[in-house]
């Protein structure tokens, strides 16, 4: 067991290092964005003096490296800074005025919503995709297999908004089963929340199923020529049993990795679906922040996305390691 712990610890440290490197990249990239918050917010009234004053208030006049460490120091303590857009500028409203909303306050509820949507989607999509993959492997090269492949590939090839509108058309307009707007808010009951989340979740399910299903199918079929699979067959085991009990446990590592990638996508890449369903997730906030040059929010979102990617891949790594009996039970 100590062997596994050591590997996990190594991966964790490596993950932290990656996150650090990514934070540098994010900071550098965001600060290289063309345009300037002060100019954007002042619009026509951007006199050099006003711009300079705002830049001073926001600390934008400091050297980049200093700003980076200031930001990093805050981020490590959970303080991601103050949103520019919400800031009350001292140079305009005077010193003693209340500070604006912190980035944390702004992001937290949005992030929660995003996690909720990702969670609901994962609960539907992962069992569905893996199950479909297993069935496709079992009935490989039959009409079912081909049908499942065509379904998965055509849904991943269609634009997300198109899938969303098709689902709205069939499940909200022609057969009004589900609400087409997903405007969830605080204090909503769980049941209602799930109901409102279902359509975007279904849309996302269609988007992420293909990868997971095809990897499950391929990883299983890859193993079917193994001697131990032949042995299981020669023991008179039923095909379904052979696949689930003998092939699947040995095919877990690649499947877990693809699942992790797709879950990461659900957290970081669902802006279009959020827009279509008016779902108050982090994606919209992020896009708005980029539009407004609201640097602290952009940076915070990027950092959260990066952390989600790293964390999920780390988890996948660890689970893959644990799925290998050679590592779990050394000689």
């Amino acid at each position: 067991m100590s062997n596994v712990l050591k590997i996990i610890l190594q991966r964790l440290l490596l993950g932290l290092l990656t996150l650090f490197v990514v934070s540098v990249v994010i900071f550098a990239a965001v600060n290289m964005l063309p345009g300037d918050f002060a100019e954007v917010i002042l619009g026509q009234g951007a006199t050099p003096d006003a711009v300079a004053a705002i830049r001073r208030d926001l600390g934008l006049d400091q050297p980049l490296v200093l700003r980076y460490f200031h930001w990093l120091g805050g981020a490590v303590q959970g303080d991601l800074g103050t949103s520019f857009a919400q800031a009350n500028f001292a140079s305009f409203v005077g010193e003693g005025a209340a500070k604006g909303a912190t980035v944390m306050q702004q992001i937290a509820p949005r992030f929660e919503n995003t996690m909720f949507l990702a969670g609901v989607t994962a609960l539907i999509a992962v069992p569905f995709a893996v199950g479909l993959g297993i069935l496709a492997a079992l009935y490989r090269n039959t009409a079912f297999d081909k049908g499942a492949n065509v379904f998965a590939l055509s849904s991943i090839s269609s634009p997300e908004f198109f899938l969303a509108y098709v689902l709205i058309l069939f499940l909200a307009v022609l057969n009004p089963i589900l609400p087409s707007l997903s405007n969830i808010y605080d204090g909503m009951g769980l049941g209602e929340r799930i109901e409102k989340t279902l359509l975007p979740a279904l849309t996302l399910t269609l988007v992420v199923t293909a990868h997971m299903m095809r990897m499950t199918r391929a990883a299983i079929i890859n193993l079917l020529a193994s001697p131990y699979i032949e042995m299981a067959r020669l023991k008179g085991m039923k095909p379904m049993h052979v696949i689930v009990r003998h092939a699947l446990p040995n095919a877990l590592a690649p499947i877990i990795n693809v699942i992790a990638l797709n879950l990461a996508y659900l957290i970081t890449g669902v802006v279009v679906v959020e827009v279509v369903f008016v779902y108050p997730g982090i994606g919209q906030l992020f896009v708005d922040a980029v539009k407004n040059r609201d640097i602290p929010v952009v940076q915070a979102c990027c950092l959260i996305f990066a952390a989600a990617y790293i964390l999920l891949n780390l988890l996948a790594d660890i689970l893959s390691i644990l799925s290998n009996p050679r590592l779990r039970h050394p000689k």
Binding site: S226, P227, Y228, E230, M231, A232, R233, L234, K235, G236, M237, H246, P249, N250, S323, P325, R326
Partner: peptide, 19 residues
């Protein structure tokens, strides 16, 4: 198969499921 007719393969290392 497995009940009245059984099979012993060449490489036991490959024919036992590692999992």
């Amino acid at each position: 198969l497995g009940k009245r007719i059984a099979y012993v393969a060449q490489s036991a290392a490959a024919s036992f499921n590692p999992a």
